[in-house]
Computed example of a mutant assay.
Amino acid sequence: MMPDDPLSQLRDIHLPHTGGFWPPALGWWALAFALLIALAALAWLVRRHRRRNRWLKLARAELAELERTAAKESRWFTQLNTLLKRVARERYPEQHPEALSGEQWAAYLLRHLPEGQISHQPIVEALVYSPWHPVPLAEPHQALAFARTWLEAQKC
């Protein structure tokens, strides 16, 4: 090699350093923003759903308590009717179901059942009229089964 040879003074080709992972490219920022918006929307929907169905959870807990204290007494049937009226008022406030009684209340309960559930009519009538009779007309286990069915039909 000759010392005055200019080619001998050249070094090997070095590639430039690649950009690191930070700052990310614009597309990654857009993806992160879209994911953040999607997570916020999902959290809002879950919270809204839970808030809208909180009454159902409380009603189920109260129904379980009534199931533990089930007795063929007028007072017990009054408590069950009160629970159903509170649920109806929460679910359908514009219809004012708390003002209904007797035959109108029984018809209201039947009207808010899924199709093909008309077989519950004798139980509903007995449930509605049992608080006014010295010996209730319905059996507590039948009334509880109807109340469970009716509650599940009220989901939002």
Rank of each mutant, 00 (worst) to 15 (best):
H49A: 08
W76K: 04
A40W: 07
A61F: 06
T78R: 14
E65D: 10
A40R: 11
Q104W: 03
E90T: 02
E94M: 11
T78Q: 10
L58M: 15
T78E: 12
L66C: 01
F77V: 02
K85W: 07
R60M: 09
W28F: 14
Q95K: 07
R75W: 05
A34E: 06
L45D: 04
L36I: 02
L26H: 13
A25D: 13
F33K: 04
R91P: 03
R75V: 10
R60V: 03
S74I: 05
E73N: 05
S101Q: 13
W105H: 00
L63V: 03
Y108C: 01
W55Y: 13
L80G: 02
R91A: 01
E73G: 03
V87E: 15
K57H: 11
H49F: 11
P97F: 06
L36S: 11
E65S: 06
R68E: 10
A106S: 04
L113W: 00
T78P: 02
E103T: 03
R52W: 09
E103P: 02
Y92F: 14
L26G: 12
P114Y: 00
V46K: 05
Y108L: 00
A25Y: 03
I37Q: 13
E62P: 09
H112A: 01
A34T: 11
R47E: 07
P97D: 06
Q104M: 02
G27D: 15
A71T: 09
L100F: 08
L83K: 07
R50N: 06
Y108W: 06
F77T: 06
R86C: 05
L39P: 02
R47T: 14
E73C: 03
W28N: 14
L109K: 00
R75N: 04
R50E: 05
A64Q: 12
F77N: 09
L113K: 00
A25H: 14
L31G: 12
G27R: 15
A40Q: 09
R75S: 09
H112R: 08
K72A: 12
F33E: 01
N53D: 09
W29L: 15
N53Y: 03
P24V: 11
G102V: 01
W28T: 12
E98F: 05
E103G: 00
N81P: 04
L100C: 04
P97A: 08
A99F: 11
E73R: 07
F33Y: 04
L36A: 13
R86P: 05
L36C: 09
L56K: 05
E90I: 00
A30Y: 08
A38T: 08
R54C: 04
A71I: 03
N81Q: 15
L100M: 05
R51T: 14
R60H: 15
